[in-house]
């Protein structure tokens, strides 16, 4: 009899169809969130407001994409398909990332007139980072032990990212009026999308029952507690309860921004997915 509170390997997870389904669904949420946000980060490369920051931001994007790779490889191990295919050949409706991470960096394209919004980059990365910290902490107790294990390692890197974004958010909040106004506007924009970050999608109940992750309400509550504390400490007004975007990314509903992102990031691979690149 398999103990589903402590699943030690992919082989064991694959012996229970319901468990496997819930686990894969969760892994897609985790992997797609990191992958798409890292992609948005990679578009910023060479365009950040300060040369030294450009370099630091790129490391964060690389770390984040590195986390996605580990998660796609876990999915590969669970029989979901090749990691490179999972990242680049699925249709937009098969992606489980939250709407927040797929939004464009601002007007324009990375190749042409990138009128990117640094305040939005800070607000989004910080809010997501805080969420990811709480999610990773919850995953420390996941019934899928390979995930619990890797969540600890990821948390170390994530905490460094969060430190970085926290320095930025505080600096913007405490500097010029313009910076503060831009930051507040960006936070409003982020808040419009925060809702589905906490959604675990249609299989939420299974994920929780199988002990894969804590429930949506609990994650949201912890996020609000931590966020309010930080906002208070830097004199930022708490923008209120997070709002839910029109689409629910966890259910495969997405904006055109994701369609554009996927077309770009798979452009070369799709020339010939059977070739070696």
């Amino acid at each position: 009899m398999i103990d589903y509170s402590r699943v030690q390997s992919a082989q064991l997870a694959m012996q229970n169809a319901a468990y496997l389904l819930a686990l894969k669904e969760l892994l897609f949420q985790l992997a797609d969130d990191d992958f798409i946000l890292a992609y948005r980060g990679s578009e910023w490369l060479g365009l950040a407001p300060h040369i030294e920051e450009d370099v630091a931001f790129s490391s964060i994007a690389q770390d984040t994409m590195g986390h996605a790779v580990i998660l796609y490889e876990m999915l590969e191990e669970l029989g979901a398909g090749k990691a490179d295919d999972l990242a680049q050949l699925r249709n937009p409706e098969d992606f489980r990332n939250a709407i927040l991470v797929e939004r464009r960096n601002g007007a324009g394209e990375y190749l042409e007139n990138p009128h990117y919004d640094w305040a939005y980059a800070i607000a989004r990365n910080y809010s997501y980072g805080l969420f990811k910290q709480i999610r990773l902490e919850s995953l420390h107790n996941s019934s899928y032990l390979p995930l619990a294990q890797v969540s600890r390692k990821m948390l170390t890197e994530l905490n460094y990212h969060l430190f970085h974004w926290q320095v930025w958010i505080r600096h913007l909040a405490e500097s010029t009026e313009e910076a503060r106004r831009r930051l507040e506007a960006a936070l409003e924009k982020v808040w419009d999308d925060i809702g589905d970050l906490f959604s675990l999608g249609p299989l939420a109940a299974h994920m929780v029952n199988f002990g894969l992750i804590a429930g949506e309400e609990l994650l949201l509550q912890r996020w609000k507690e931590k966020g309010k504390e930080v906002f208070h400490s830097i004199g930022l007004e708490w923008p209120g309860d997070p709002r839910v975007p029109q689409q629910n990314g966890r259910a495969g509903e997405h904006t055109d921004d994701l369609v554009q992102a996927l077309a770009t990031l798979s452009e070369v691979y799709r020339l010939d997915p059977t070739a070696k690149w």
């Binding site: 300060h50 040369i51 030294e52 920051e53 370099v55 630091a56 790129s58 490391s59 430190f163 970085h164 320095v167 930025w168 600096h171």
Partner: peptide, 19 residues
Amino acid sequence: LLAPNHEVALSLARENFLR
């Protein structure tokens, strides 16, 4: 490196020189 203050300098230092 160039930074406005010590805190920002610290947040940039590792990734610029110790990747």
